[in-house]
Simulated assay, not measured.
Amino acid sequence: MTVLRRILRTVPLAIALAGVALVVPDSAVHPTDVALMKVQVAEGTDLGKLAHGKDIVTVLAVGSDARPGEDMLHTRGDALHLIFLDLKTHAAADIGIPRDSYVSIPGVGSDRINASLYYGGPDLLGQTVGNLVGVQPDYVFVTRFLYFQHMVNAIGGITVHNPISFTDSAIGSFDAGTLHLNGLNALKFSRIRHPLAGGDFDRSANQDRVIRGIQEQVRAHQGDPGFIARGVLSVMQNLATDLSPSELFRFAHVLADIDPAKVTNCVVHGGFADINGASVVTPDVAAAQRYGDEARDDATLESC
């Protein structure tokens, strides 16, 4: 597997929070590269009706490990983030879930949580993650990541705040402090895990930093004349979705309106185990449920 391929597989799907796939004009997106789907087990997911009672929207963002020619909606997932959006306060909460978390998959049995996309598509993945956190997502956002670098470059790069310096000899080095990243370096920053003390857990935290950087940049440009409208019209020609045009436009505004100062995040930590010869993560289910309880009403996480 090439270094570039390894990087692309682990870019955070939580770019959904930033709304990049919806609001970046002229981004090169194709139907087999990105999808935004309603989850059938969720209730009240019509964004057009949110002003009449539903204030919190939940989006499960996930990367697909599909190879060229494979159905990205029925393969193993990657970089899982359950995102809560508050339409009234413009707050957002991001719960990162390690892809190797060993859980019960409805109708299947126990396996890594990312395998539920392979077994039953976005609906089953959404149900499995929802069972872990205690909150079912309204939408599932899936992508192959192949256009991520272009989109970060299209918005002028992003700024992240890196707490510690780290180096991966195969991928790259990053100093501590405030960093401005282009598309390729944002990919690399999201990829590295081996030199990080917390491994996958710390990588998920870095993915959240990239999410914040993208969302801040998109929010800074959302007031540009026609920015969201052009993006939605362009993506409507290429995006695989079961949302109506009005829902998609509303969705873009909801994402772009998130206040970066009101974004909180936690990663579901746990232990490690060897099950049937495979290394897996044993998630802290109690913590995952606590995060869900904290975020369900106001899209805010109090502590991790």
Rank of each mutant, 00 (worst) to 15 (best):
D168Y: 05
L8A: 10
R191Y: 15
M1I: 08
V29Q: 13
A229G: 09
S110P: 00
V218E: 15
T75F: 06
R212A: 09
S303W: 09
G156S: 01
F148T: 07
V267W: 04
D33A: 08
D274L: 05
P245Y: 00
V210A: 09
V23G: 02
A278N: 07
A51L: 08
F145E: 05
V285H: 05
N114E: 11
F174Y: 10
I105P: 01
L233N: 15
K38S: 11
V140N: 04
L187T: 04
A92S: 07
A287F: 02
I228F: 12
P12T: 06
V108P: 01
D175A: 11
E70T: 03
V108I: 15
R219M: 13
A51C: 13
V129I: 15
V232R: 11
F251K: 02
G19D: 15
V135L: 05
D175T: 06
K54L: 09
A288Q: 13
L239W: 00
L248T: 00
R191V: 06
M37D: 02
S190H: 04
Y291K: 02
A252L: 09
I97H: 10
A229V: 14
D284A: 06
M1K: 12
L124N: 13
G157T: 06
I97M: 04
G44P: 01
P68N: 06
A93W: 04
A256I: 00
V210T: 11
P245L: 04
H30D: 15
L4V: 10
A61E: 05
